[in-house]
Each structure stands twice: as C-alpha cells, then as structure tokens.
Simulated scan of single mutants.
Amino acid sequence: MPRLFTGLEVPESVAFALSLKRGGLSGARWIDTDSYHITLRFIGDVDHQTADEVAASLDRLSNSMRFDVRLTHLGTFGGDKPRALFAGVEPSAALSQLQSAHERVLQRAGLPPDGRKFVPHVTLARLRGSSAMDAARFMAEAGRFEPLQFPVGRFVLFSSRDSVGGGPYVVEQSYPLAA
C-alpha cells in the first residue's frame, strides 16, 4: 500500500540556503535537502484503487492560480519537548485556499477529514532528546533568518516509504497551476 501526501516542492536554491542552518543542535537528525517540501495534505496508507482515485481527484485543482511562498522564520513543534525544527511559511491566502481545496477534494474522494490544523512549514530536522532550551539557543545563534521566496507553479502527489522521517519522497504525479 502506498503512503501518500500532497505538497509543494522546495527549489534547489532555497533548499541550499536552508541547508546552511544545519548543524550545532544536539539530538537533531537533519533532513536531506532533496526531501524538503511543504505538506498540503497527509493522506496516509491507502490501497492502490484509492491511490488512483486520489490522483484523479486532484486533477480538479489545476485551475488554482500560481502564487509565491515566503519562508520567514525558524520554529519548533513540540513545546517543552521539541520534536521538529522547521522553517515557517508566511501566511498566504493563496496557499490556504489551495490547502482547503485539497481537503475538500480528498474528502469527496472518501478520505476522512485531516484533524490537524494546517501549519505550513519545511521540516529541517527531527529532534530527539533536544530540550526547549537547546532549540531556543540554536535558533538564537542561527542568526537572522533572511526570508526566502519562491514561485509555486505546481503541486505534487508524493509517496513515501514507511520509515522514521518518511523520506526519500517520490513524486507520483504533478499538477500544474494556472498562470
């Protein structure tokens, strides 16, 4: 059964700039730069028939308009026990609309609603054993985060293998956005 999710790819130049933040955080398992992405909707493990239905359903979203994404800051998930370090995405109406459209289309295809709040980000590292103080110190010492912006001309359906951290990710299908 494939494990699927939809997302936005991060261009190589932006991935390289993000990779310069790597290192110096104890307990961090750094994500490979070719696995950097912004998840729009986690789908999970599905049978092949459902995977085909999902892929066909996503075609309906190709009329969504192109837009830019802007990464503006470092952050963590997990509060007192941080589990991930990420680059945060500046809120955008176009991104929120695309993600909401994914949610609607995938529910119509028979998938249950995603119960998590959409917090767009690029995961840079998985954390194990890092304290909140370690993470805060790392972010303070990482220096000013120069915003990184890139155009989004398509979204993709990714598959991943069942592993810790998921990657490597494979683009199963891409869906161009309207100009």
Score class of each variant (00 low, 15 high):
Ser62Val: 05
Gln97Trp: 13
Gln49Leu: 05
Ser13Asp: 15
Phe155Glu: 05
Gln99Ile: 01
Phe155Val: 04
Gln99Ala: 09
Pro151Ser: 03
Pro147Lys: 13
Ser92Thr: 08
Arg83His: 10
Gln173Pro: 08
Phe155Leu: 01
Ala135Leu: 03
Ser19Glu: 12
Ala101Ile: 01
Asp80Ser: 15
Ser26Gln: 12
Gly88Arg: 01
Gly166Glu: 06
Tyr36Thr: 03
Trp30Ser: 06
Ile38Trp: 02
Glu146Thr: 13
Gly79Leu: 04
Lys81Met: 02
His48Phe: 12
Gly165Phe: 11
Phe138Ser: 02
Leu58Trp: 01
Asp114Gly: 08
Pro11Gly: 02
Phe138Trp: 14
Pro11Val: 01
Ala125His: 08
Gly166Trp: 10
Pro176Asp: 06
Ser26Tyr: 12
Gly143Phe: 08
Gly115His: 12
Ile31Thr: 13
Asp114Cys: 03
Gly143Arg: 04
Ser160Gly: 12
Ala179Leu: 15
Val10Asn: 04
His102Asn: 11
Ala87Arg: 10
Arg126Tyr: 14
Ala142His: 12
Phe77Lys: 08
Met139Ser: 07
Val10Thr: 04
Asp34Lys: 06
Phe150Leu: 11
Gly7Lys: 01
Lys21Asn: 15
Gly153Leu: 07
Phe138Arg: 11
Gln173Thr: 13
Lys81Phe: 05
Arg128Asn: 14
Lys117His: 14
Phe77Tyr: 13
Ala84Pro: 03
His37Pro: 09
Val119Ala: 08
Phe86Leu: 10
Ser163Glu: 06
Val46Ala: 05
Arg108Ser: 10
Gly75Lys: 01
Arg66Thr: 00
Arg128Trp: 07
Asp34Glu: 13
